[in-house]
Design a protein around this nucleic acid. Structure first.
Length: 738
DNA sequence: ATAGGGTTAG
C-alpha cells in the first residue's frame, strides 16, 4: 500500500499548488461519501465507503478522514485497529485527525494507546495539542487512573495558555476524582472561574463516586443556591449519592424534585432512580417506576432482578430473570453473587452449573470471583481447582480480584501450598491480595509466617487497610502472639492511620482474654471509644469459658444478651452458670424464656466434598443414601476409640451445650463425626479428609479427630467457623489452642 | 463544521 502515500488518481478540482494543503476545503464536505459514512451498518459497507474515499481522494481531506476514523473507531461493528489503519493512510493528519484518534482510544478498552498517540502527535504533528486534545487525553488518564500522566497534561495545558479553558478544567476535576484525590479535584473546581452546569456535575459525581455522598448532596444544595439549573446528569449523580447513603427519604424527594422541575426523564435517569430505590431497600417503589417506564433496557431489568435477590425474594428474582428479553452475564452474576453472599453457596454453584450448561453467555471475571467465593464457603476444592484451570485455559489474565479469590478459595479449602503458589505466581499484588494471604496463613495457625508476610507487604510499599489489620490480629489470636498483637493494635492509628474498628477491638479482646489477661481485656472494653457490640462481649465470654471465670462470664452474658437477645449460646452458658451456683429460680426462668421466645440453637452442620460433589450432615442425620454404612463405620470407630482408652469428654465447668447433648450418644453423632465416617468409607487412604463445619468444633470432636488420625493413619482437615484444624498422627496443627 | 461530564455486577 506504499503507493497510497501519494494519490494515484488525481483529485477532483484539486488545486495545482504543491505541497497540497487539505485543511478547510469545503469542496469535500458535501461529498456524497460523507453522508454514506453515517448510514453504514456493517464493516463491509464501511470498507466500501473507505475504498470510494480512497479512489476519489476525499480521504486526503483531514475533516473527511476524521469522520471515517470516528465511524471506524466508535461504531459497534468496527474496530479501533481498522481506524488505526485508516489513520496510517492519511499523509498529513492535522490536529483534528489526531484528536479524533486520541478521543477514540480514550474511551476504548485500551486507553493507554490514547496516551501513546498523544506522544506520537507531539513528535509528528506540526500543530500543538489544542483545547480539544487535552480533554480527550485527560479522559484517557482518568480511565487509567494515571495520576502522574494527568498531572503532566494539566501542566502542559497551563503552559499552552489553556489553563482556564472550562472544558479542560471540568475534565481535570473528573480526572483527579477518579484517581481518588478528592482534594485536588475540589481545588480545581474551586478555581474554575465561570462554572457551568458540567463543572457542578463533575464535582458532584466525584463526591458521589468517591464515598462522600453527603458532600455530593451538600454540593447539590449549594448549586441550587447559586441558581445553576441542574440537568438530568446532575440528578443521576445525586440519586447515586442517595443510594450510597441509603437515604430513601431524600431519594424520594429527589424523584419528586425531578418531576416538579421538569427535568426530562430519559432511560439513564430512570435507571438511576430504580437503582436508588433498590439500594435503599424499596423494591415496591422500584416496581412502580419500572411499570411506568416508557423504555427499559438490560440495566433496568438487571436492577429489578438485583432488588428481589438482595431481599432474598428468589421466587420473584427468578421470575424477572425468565422475563427479561435476554439474560446477559450480569444477570447470571446477580443470582450467583446474591446466593453466595447470603450464605447459600450450594445454590450459587447450582446457578453456575446451569450457566455452564446453557453454553452462553460465557462466565466473566465477576462470575468466577463469586463462584470461587461459594467454593471457599463450602470447601469445594475440586470445583475451585477446576475454575483455576478454566482461567488458565481461557488465558484470562489474573487480576487482583481473581488472585484474591483464588488465594482465599485454596486457603479456605485447606490447600495452603496452592494458595502460596498463586500468590507467588502473580506480578501485581494489591492490599487485598496481601491481606488474603495473611488471612490464609492465620487460619492455618501459621501466625508467625503471617506476620512475616505483613512486613514483606510493608517493604513492597503496599499500604495496609482495616482488613489487613483484622487479619494480622487474627493471626496473633490463633497463635497466641499476645505482645505482637498488642503492639500492632496500638500502632494502627498513629503509625498506619487506620482507625481501630469494632472487629479490631473484638480481636484484641480475644487475644488478651484467651491468653488469660482478662483484666486487661475488660479495661480495653471500658476504654473503647465506640460502643462494644455483641461480638466484643462474645470474645470476652469465650475467654471466661476457657479460664473458668464464672463471675466475669455472668457479666459478659448479660451484656451479650442485651445486644443480641436471641443468642442461644449465651443463654445456655448463663443457665449452666446458674445451675453450678445453685440459682435454680434463675435457671428455670431462663429456660422458660428460651422456650417462650423460641430461641433455638443453630444446628451444627458439616460438609465434605467427595469426587466433586458436596455431602452435608446434620447432628444424628440419617438422610444420606449410605446411611447404614456410615453408622456401622461409626460403631466400629467407637469400639476402636474405646479400646484405646478414649472417654467422651463432657465435664467442662462452662459448657455451651445443653444437658441432652451431653450423652455419649449425642456426642458420637455430632455432624463432623458423621462426615469423617463418610470420608473414611468413600475416600482412598491417600486422600486427606476435608470437612467444613458451620460452628466451632467441640472439644470432644477435636480429641476424637486427633485419635482417628492416628488409629486410621489418615490426614483430616477440619475447618470450623474460625479456623483450620489439621489432624495428623494424633496431633492437631492448632496445638490445642483455639 | 468538528470535540468535554452520568447509571447497572465484585
Amino acid at each position: 500500500m506504499a503507493s497510497l502515500s501519494t494519490p494515484v488518481i488525481s483529485l477532483p478540482c484539486h488545486p495545482n499548488s504543491s505541497p497540497p494543503t487539505f485543511s478547510t476545503d469545503l469542496r469535500f464536505s458535501s461529498h456524497p461519501a460523507l453522508s454514506l459514512i453515517d448510514q453504514c451498518t456493517s464493516i463491509k459497507q464501511l470498507k466500501q465507503v473507505h475504498a470510494q474515499m480512497l479512489r476519489t481522494g476525499v480521504l486526503f481531506d483531514p475533516y473527511s478522514a476524521s469522520k471515517l476514523i470516528a465511524a471506524s473507531a466508535l461504531s459497534s461493528f468496527s474496530s479501533l485497529d481498522y481506524a488505526r489503519q485508516v489513520f496510517d493512510q492519511i499523509p498529513q493528519p492535522n490536529v483534528y485527525t489526531w484528536n479524533t484518534l486520541i478521543r477514540a482510544y480514550a474511551s476504548s478498552s485500551d486507553p493507554a494507546e490514547s496516551i501513546l498517540v498523544f506522544l506520537e502527535m507531539l513528535d509528528h504533528c506540526s500543530e500543538c495539542p489544542d483545547k480539544y486534545t487535552y480533554p480527550f487525553a485527560i479522559k484517557a488518564a482518568s480511565e487509567l487512573r494515571a495520576l502522574p500522566v494527568g498531572r503532566g497534561f494539566h501542566g502542559m495545558a497551563i503552559k499552552a495558555s489553556l489553563g482556564s479553558d472550562i472544558y479542560i478544567l471540568n475534565s481535570l476535576v473528573h480526572f483527579y476524582g477518579s484517581c481518588g484525590d478528592l482534594d485536588l479535584a475540589r481545588r480545581v473546581f474551586v478555581k474554575t472561574p465561570k462554572k457551568d452546569v458540567v463543572s457542578w456535575n463533575s464535582m458532584i459525581t466525584v463526591f458521589a463516586q468517591g464515598n462522600c455522598p453527603q458532600e455530593a448532596l451538600e454540593l447539590f444544595k449549594e448549586m441550587e443556591a447559586e441558581n445553576v439549573k441542574p440537568n438530568d446528569v446532575t440528578m443521576v449523580s445525586v440519586l447515586s449519592a442517595c443510594a450510597k447513603k441509603v437515604d430513601l427519604e431524600f431519594g424520594r424527594w429527589v424523584c419528586s424534585y425531578i418531576q416538579r422541575n421538569e427535568i426530562k426523564e430519559n432511560l439513564t435517569l430512570n435507571n438511576a432512580m430504580l437503582d436508588m430505590y433498590v439500594k435503599c431497600g424499596s423494591v415496591e417503589d422500584a416496581k412502580r417506576l419500572f411499570d411506568r417506564m416508557p423504555e427499559k433496557d438490560i440495566v433496568s431489568w438487571t436492577t429489578m432482578l438485583d432488588g428481589y435477590a438482595q431481599l432474598g425474594n428468589y421466587e420473584e428474582a427468578w421470575r424477572v430473570f425468565a422475563a427479561m428479553p435476554s439474560q446477559d452475564i450480569a444477570a447470571w452474576n446477580v443470582l450467583i453473587s446474591s446466593y453466595e453472599q447470603s450464605g447459600k453457596p450450594k445454590e450459587a454453584l447450582a446457578v453456575f452449573n446451569e450457566l455452564q450448561k446453557s453454553k452462553s453467555p460465557k462466565p466473566d471475571e465477576v462470575t468466577l470471583v463469586s463462584t470461587l467465593a461459594a467454593c471457599a464457603q463450602l470447601g469445594a476444592i475440586d470445583l475451585g481447582g477446576w475454575i483455576h484451570v478454566y482461567i488458565k485455559k481461557q488465558v484470562m489474565k489474573l487480576n487482583c480480584h481473581l488472585t484474591t479469590s483464588l488465594i482465599d478459595m485454596y486457603a479456605k479449602c485447606g490447600d495452603l501450598d496452592k494458595a502460596l503458589e498463586v500468590f507467588n505466581s502473580v506480578e501485581r499484588r494489591d492490599v487485598f491480595v496481601w491481606s488474603a494471604m495473611i488471612a490464609g496463613l492465620a487460619m492455618h495457625g501459621q501466625g508467625r509466617d503471617a506476620l512475616e508476610f505483613f512486613s514483606k507487604m510493608l517493604e513492597a510499599k503496599v499500604k495496609p487497610n482495616a482488613v489487613t489489620f483484622t487479619n494480622v490480629l487474627c493471626a496473633c489470636s490463633h497463635t497466641g502472639l499476645v505482645d505482637e498483637g498488642r503492639t500492632f493494635f496500638y500502632q494502627m492509628e498513629p503509625v498506619y492511620g487506620v482507625m481501630p474498628g469494632i472487629k479490631h477491638y473484638a480481636c484484641m479482646v480475644d487475644i488478651l482474654g484467651r491468653s488469660g489477661n482478662l483484666d486487661e481485656a475488660v479495661e480495653l472494653i471500658e476504654k473503647m471509644p465506640i460502643p462494644p457490640t455483641a461480638s466484643v462481649w462474645g470474645a470476652l465470654l469465650g475467654a471466661c469459658k476457657l479460664h473458668g471465670n464464672v463471675v466475669l462470664a455472668e457479666k459478659a452474658c448479660s451484656h451479650l444478651l442485651e445486644l443480641d437477645p436471641r443468642n442461644h449460646g449465651a443463654y445456655v452458658l448463663l443457665s449452666n452458670i446458674y445451675a453450678k451456683t445453685g440459682k435454680w429460680d434463675e435457671v428455670s426462668g431462663l429456660r422458660k424464656h428460651m422456650r417462650d421466645a423460641g430461641i433455638k440453637k443453630e444446628p451444627g452442620c458439616s460438609s465434605i466434598e467427595v469426587n466433586g460433589s458436596v455431602h452435608e450432615f446434620l447432628v444424628g442425620d440419617n438422610s444420606h443414601p449410605l446411611c447404614k454404612e456410615i453408622y456401622s463405620k461409626l460403631d466400629e470407630m467407637a469400639l476402636r476409640l474405646k479400646s484405646n482408652g478414649y472417654v467422651p469428654n463432657k465435664s467442662h465447668l462452662l459448657q455451651f451445650v445443653e444437658e441432652e447433648d451431653m450423652k455419649d450418644h449425642a456426642l458420637i453423632l455430632h455432624s463432623e463425626k458423621l462426615a469423617i465416617a463418610f470420608g473414611l468409607i468413600s475416600l482412598s487412604p491417600s486422600q486427606p479428609i476435608h470437612v467444613v463445619k458451620n460452628l466451632r468444633v467441640c472439644g470432644d470432636c477435636h480429641s476424637v479427630a486427633k485419635l482417628i488420625s492416628k488409629l486410621y493413619d489418615r490426614e483430616i482437615l477440619l475447618r470450623d467457623r474460625y479456623r483450620f484444624h489439621h489432624f495428623r498422627e494424633g496431633h492437631c496443627s492448632c496445638n490445642d489452642y483455639w
